[in-house]
Design a protein around this nucleic acid. Sequence first.
RNA 1: GUCCCGUUCGUCUAGCCAGGUUAGGACACAGGGUUUUCAUCCCUGCAACAGGGGUUCGAAUCCCCUACGGGAUGCCA
Length: 438
Amino acid sequence: MSEVRVRFAPSPTGFFHIGSARTALFNWLYARKTGGKFVLRIEDTDKERNTPEALQVLLDGMKWLGMDWDEGPEKDGEYGPYFQSQRGEIYDKHLQILRDKGLAYDKEGAVFFKVSDKPQIIEDKVRGRVERTEEKDFVIYRSDGSPVFHFVNVVDDMTMGITHVIRGEDHLSNTSKHTELFKAFGATEPVFAHIPLILKQSGPGKMSKRDKGALIEEYQDKQFLPSAVRNYLCLLGWSPKDDREVMTIDEILEEYDFKGIQKGSAKFDEKKMAFINTEHLRQLPLETFSWMASPVLNEAGLIDEDTDEDYFQKVMMLAQPKVNSLDTLAEYVGYFFDDDFAYDEKVTAKLSKKGNPAEKVAEAKEALEGLENWTEKSVEGAFMKLAEDQGQEKPFPWFPSVRWAVSGAGGGPDLLPLLVVLGKDKVVARFERAIAQN
RNA sequence: GUCCCGUUCGUCUAGCCAGGUUAGGACACAGGGUUUUCAUCCCUGCAACAGGGGUUCGAAUCCCCUACGGGAUGCCA
């Protein structure tokens, strides 16, 4: 059996739409699953929109999502060129073939293709047998001499040896045009698989580039994990048929097949996307988490090359099990790196209802500042002693005020480890600042 | 208008092909618990077979019709 060859054929518009990304992904998965080739072909015939920047958005998005291609831009193969703008001669040659066969004719300045009028049967891998008759001849070359989509698409798939066409359902009705053309050239038709569309979260219709979450660039900007976006995209219209959802790409590859692809279209759900992202974040090895967090915190001006590596790692260890996204990480751990953090007014107000929090902080300061060892155990011991001296069983009444004094926040990592990681000097200094300012 | 495709909790889905399930899971939401706190963790609850007809002892599952949704019908891709 010959090698599987699939392709993703985007048109660079300056955006990388989530639906396109998923189409690319389903092709990529099939290629990797079968050991075939994944071809990236650029449909750059629209000279207005197709700028180098627009192409770059696309290539960056592909790489970010981990979809490497075997042939295409930056990776020449024997079926090139991979830009439609450079394939003019190939198209003209194929037009001539149809002319010679008497299947193409001029009319109103354009070139029309003569359809057979026979029912076209598509054995679609997702939808089963679909039958449709193409009744009217259609234009394959415009009057300005340029070939149209249906024609170039088929010629490219044919000349690039594409064996499987995996694309959006919006092309299902067009497929009869394509099979007519394949037959006219005497070529073997590829296997078709039409995947469902991604619909808007609310309102009618498919997702458009204006909808929230529609562009891969958004996920890049918001520091989503590419593995999570990829995972969610797989789940939108495909299922492993058991209850697994959070999966690695290897696990997905293990299960991926056309049978798992849904027939009905799916609505995008940003909350589930966020959930999958958080799960992937939790499952990261600490080193990877730190490695990804580092540029984010650097960007936020919280760390630089002088930041103590050991301290940084310890903070990351506290943050990873609790923070929900890299996007909010700077906010979550900012006070570890910035002594000038602000006190959350709501928290200040809440604490003040039960008395002046600065008093509790002053008591904590007195209890802790004399400690020689600064460990969870010793800090806890000092708090216990403070509680006993005040006739309390547990030191809990002091904790919210202490947290507020050292972080300005009402929540965060476990308090004792937090204090230990901050270190005695910082803790005491922050106690003093809180007392002085409130 | 015509043609093509689809329809299970609010959402993503399992189950359908090979008819018998208390129709399962997840997100979200609601309640409870753990926790000094929290954006962590645990438990519980809520909630669906689009409608109608047929076949059958028995239908989410097979067949037909209707409704609704989506797509195509471009000298866009």
